[in-house]
Design a binder for these strands. Structure first.
Length: 770
DNA sequence: TTAGTTCCGCTTTTT
DNA sequence: GCGGAACTAA
């Protein structure tokens, strides 16, 4: 086994793998083979005879967990599959189910997501007669979540606020208190509770703690820089006996402090475990030296970090460059031009490109431009499958069948489809329920007594009957059957069919997809119960969509980019106020987190990295002028941006004089389209996501071939086109990105592979087409 | 009760 | 400039 390891690992990776006993911290820089080290380390442990059941590996995302599981069982077929690899939340959910009786918890608990949480908070704020304007839903819901991340109860929060004379905090604590009561009454827990309840169970029941400590002799934590206080304590408790704890992370990639992550957990690991061994993985296998040194240069500006320096043996064949645009549309067009099929002599697939931005709102401009340029793209992460209204509706029915006391779900579907049960009816009923300390469901029989009119009473009764009719199926029938019955018998599907709009058709499609996801769940998992399904869904917030990104350019926020890699990366909107965002530049802590986010983005690039900014940008419908982001200067581009300003001004003038025309001849739209029309929102978002094949443009497999090159604009007979790859006797290979003038006066702006930009007179530049 | 209209206020979002 | 929530009219 040792030979296999050393053959496939470098020396520090090997060192980390072989160190199995005692606390170990692995500082794993971007692209240094972190997952490889974790999986090999587990494989090595098993090869030493450690029982797979006594190894616990914890991650943050389901994606990371399943990836790790797969790689372990690839490495060790058979026993490898028995190691316990899961997310923090999923582990705790299992724990709470298993130990429910010991800690007087009803094991049928539901898991509330953030939307559910906000709904409960809303109820609390109204019930307590608190000014909704001053105490915003999401702010309070967030504050409650952060409190749980810090293992703070409502009274802890109240005491703290009291002490510091914080009125807002005092009120928030009141809301938190009521919120918690409501959750208990509905037999629901939120994400924060999963961890917090587990921690307190372990703290209060020494028998339990002893048992789990003994069980998990080896513990590994991935992305340790993202752990919050509760998770930190949880791990500390579990590892308290054998102390074989190995954490892996990169403080430079800590970008979730706003979600409670505490970077000090990783920075202080060696203080917490004084005899800890520390290994730094610094050899990068992903990026070119130029990209790495630039990223290093940027992150070096942070004060709070563990010093490290990434290096690589990779060939130096890429570049980092700055792209300056005149406005956000121009930014998108310039990027589209670089991506469009002419780019780089057909060397790349669309899926080799990624566009990162700080805020989701920025994606729209790119969607418009890419559509115009016939560039297939996929926007990652905007609206997740299980967050769609129609899916949440169906899920609410299922939750209600499982647990009728779930007020959030009750209120969600009581009038969907419309049953004539309005706001006032529900409010009266809810008030009564609250007074009697019962759920809305339990108060339905008293509807008439409370003064509801005939119609609503009748509708309420038939609704509760409808839910009750599932009671037999609930325990014995398949979840798929229940789901199908809900969809049809509730009239939900019917209403969508009658609506018959493009939106309703998509909703129906999504519902069908939900059914196949349920089917998938039933064939894959051993726990086929409704309860099992609901837990599963609460913790896994997306369905697998393997081919989603195939042959498409990826658009996403920088946060979502963590862990991924692409040959060509565009980081956009690099402007003060947008990235670093808002007021973060005035707060060292926040600024450093923004800078880490920049570092994360930069280190995603394998070969080419573009730092893009725009002098002018529309924000909330108003045009604003921004300074270039300090991160551009920190990356060492003070001079270039000045030089390029000249080029850009010139090129924008040219564009203006050409009336922004660009003709696409072999795409579906054969006519010249004016770029101004971008803002007119030509299609619905769903249509934007259709596979590019439907345009007759992308061949299967997503490879770009010569035949699909964009043609010349009509009437332009010059061989020099925007996007054409050329070679220069001195500057080497490059690509035309701007052109102006004609004939003897034809000027070209060429972006060379070295990253340099040059404006050349075509007649004397001696360029050759390649 | 619901449909239509106006008004507000906007980072990031692993679970 | 857009979406959600709150208000208003029927």
């Amino acid at each position: 086994m040792k030979e296999i390891l050393t053959k496939n690992l470098n020396s520090s990776q090997t060192e980390a793998v072989l160190c199995t006993e005692g606390p170990l911290i692995i500082f794993a820089g971007a692209g240094t083979g972190k997952t490889r080290v974790i999986t090999y380390r587990i494989a090595y442990l098993l090869s030493l005879g450690v029982a797979p059941q006594s190894v616990l590996a914890v991650t943050f995302t389901n994606k990371a967990a399943s990836e790790m599981k797969k790689r372990i069982s690839d490495l060790i077929p058979g026993t490898g599959a028995n190691t316990w690899v899961s997310t923090f939340h999923s582990f705790c959910a299992h724990f709470l189910h298993a130990e429910a009786s010991r800690i007087s918890l009803n094991p049928d608990f539901l898991i509330y997501d953030f939307t559910d949480q906000k709904n409960v908070v809303k109820d609390c704020i109204r019930e307590l007669n608190i000014d909704e304007k001053r105490f915003k839903l999401s702010t309070i819901a967030d504050k409650i979540s952060r409190a749980k991340d810090d293992l703070k109860s409502p009274s802890d929060m109240a005491a703290e606020a009291e002490y510091s004379g914080d009125f807002f905090g005092t009120t928030a604590a009141k809301i938190y208190g009521l919120y918690q009561k409501k959750l208990e009454r509905a037999n629901a827990v939120d994400f924060g509770d999963l961890i917090m309840l587990t921690v307190s169970a372990l703290q209060q029941h020494s028998g339990l703690l002893e048992h789990y400590r003994e069980k998990y002799k080896y513990i590994m934590v991935d992305e340790y820089q993202d752990t919050n206080h509760a998770q930190y304590i949880f791990i500390k408790l579990l590892a308290g006996k054998h102390r074989n704890i190995c954490v892996v992370g990169d403080d430079d990639q800590s970008v979730y402090s706003w979600r409670g992550a505490d970077i000090n957990n990783i920075l202080d690991f060696e203080k917490d475990y004084p005899n800890a061994k520390s290994v730094k993985l610094e050899q990068n296998y992903r990026s070119t030296p130029k990209i790495l040194s630039t990223a290093n240069q940027v992150v070096k500006h942070n004060n709070v970090r563990i010093s490290k320096r990434l290096w690589t043996h990779n060939p130096d064949n890429g570049f980092v460059t700055v792209l300056k645009a005149v406005n956000e549309t121009d930014e998108a067009i310039k990027i589209a031009e670089l991506i469009c099929p002419n780019a780089y002599g057909n060397k790349y697939k669309f899926s080799d490109f990624a566009v990162f931005y700080r805020t989701n709102a920025q994606s729209r401009t790119f969607e418009d431009a890419f559509r115009e340029f016939r560039i297939p793209y996929t926007v990652v992460g905007t609206l997740r499958f299980y967050d769609r209204a129609e899916i949440k509706d169906i899920m609410a029915y299922l939750k209600l069948i499982h647990n009728p006391n779930d007020n959030v779900s009750f209120k969600r579907v009581i009038n969907i489809p419309r049953r004539g049960i309005g706001k006032t009816s529900i409010e009266t009923l809810e008030k009564f329920a609250r007074f009697k300390n019962m759920s809305i469901w339990q108060s339905v029989p008293f509807a008439q007594k409370v003064g509801l009119t005939k119609g609503p009473v009748k509708a309420l009764n038939s609704f509760t009957q409808f839910i009750k009719d599932f009671s037999a199926l609930k325990n014995s029938g398949s979840v798929k059957l229940i789901t199908e019955k809900v969809i049809t018998d509730s009239g939900y599907l019917k209403e969508l069919e009658v609506e018959n709009t493009s939106e309703s058709k998509i909703k129906i499609e999504n519902i069908q997809e939900l059914i196949s996801a349920v089917d998938d769940f039933e064939t894959r998992l051993s726990d086929k119960s409704l309860a099992g399904y609901l837990t599963q869904i609460a913790l896994i917030n997306d369905i697998d969509s393997p081919d989603e990104s195939k042959g498409k350019v990826t658009l996403m926020t920088l946060h979502l980019a963590k862990g991924l890699e692409f040959d060509n990366v565009f980081i956009c909107g690099l402007e003060e106020g947008l990235f670093p965002i808002g007021e973060s530049a005035f707060n060292d802590k926040e600024l450093e987190e923004e800078r880490r986010l920049m570092y994360v983005g930069m280190t995603r690039a394998r070969k080419r990295l573009y730092l893009c900014w725009s002098t002018e940008r529309k924000v909330y419908g108003k045009t604003i002028w921004n300074m270039p982001s300090r991160f551009i200067a920190e990356a060492g581009f003070q001079d270039e941006s000045a030089e390029m300003e000249q080029n850009r001004k010139q090129s924008f003038q040219n564009r203006l004089s050409q009336g922004f025309n660009r003709t696409i001849q072999n795409g579906g739209l054969g006519r010249g389209q004016n770029f101004r029309s971008f803002n007119e929102k030509p299609f619905k978002a769903e249509i934007l996501h259709t596979n590019a094949q439907s345009y007759g443009y992308m061949p299967p497999g997503g490879e770009i071939t010569k035949d699909e090159r964009l043609d010349n604009p009509a009437g332009d007979l010059s061989p020099y086109k925007i996007g054409t790859a050329v070679s220069h006797p001195i500057f080497g290979r490059g690509q035309i990105i701007e052109k102006s003038g004609a004939g003897n006066d034809l000027k070209l702006v060429v972006l060379f592979e070295t990253g340099q930009w040059k404006k050349l007179l075509a007649r004397i530049a001696n360029l050759t087409l390649i």
